[in-house]
């Protein structure tokens, strides 16, 4: 038999979750095995939520735009260390340098950097926390000995 149209990975993962939950987990008598079964269900749900989107790339480009939006503020300040952040290829490294600079140089420029970058980074953090919710649920349930 051939498979001219291979099964959708989503279906494979979804069905694996059902099998783990309904067949494998109930048979796991050992505490550690039950814990792992619970976590595997959470891991597959987490993976399922990530299919079809590259959240990492989206976060990178969104942060790069926010870093670039601060160019005028940073130019106006004219601080050599702060300007160096724009030479970084990674927006995450650039943002790190700018926020660290802000902690060491409080004032209007620091406040503008913090307002812009933190808003974007908090939004990304909240999105990732939401995406990882199945993993957290599985971990908490597993630690409590539940599936």
């Amino acid at each position: 038999m051939t498979l001219p149209v291979p099964p959708d990975p989503r279906v494979i993962i979804q069905n694996s979750i059902v099998t783990l939950r309904e067949v494998v987990a109930p048979l796991a008598e050992d505490e550690w095995a039950r814990f792992n079964a619970s976590l595997l269900i959470g891991a597959l749900e987490y993976a399922l939520g990530g299919l079809g989107r590259d959240r990492g790339a989206e976060h990178r480009s969104a942060l790069a735009a926010k870093v670039a939006s601060l160019q005028a503020v940073v130019d106006k300040r004219g601080d050599k260390d702060l300007l160096a952040a724009f030479a970084e290829k990674s927006p995450f490294v650039a943002a790190s340098q700018m926020l660290v600079w802000g902690q060491n140089n409080p004032g209007d420029t620091a406040a503008a950097i913090q307002k812009t970058l933190r808003a974007e980074l908090y939004a990304q953090l909240d999105e990732e926390i939401g995406a990882a919710a199945p993993m957290m649920g599985a971990f908490v349930r597993g630690m409590a000995g539940e599936i």
Binding site: N36, L39, G42, A43, Y46, L125, E128, I129, A132, M136
Partner: peptide, 16 residues
């Protein structure tokens, strides 16, 4: 998989 849970959900929660 407990490492995946700690690396993702638990880690993000404590960063927040």
């Amino acid at each position: 998989p407990n490492l995946l849970a700690i690396a993702t959900a638990v880690h993000l929660d404590v960063v927040k």
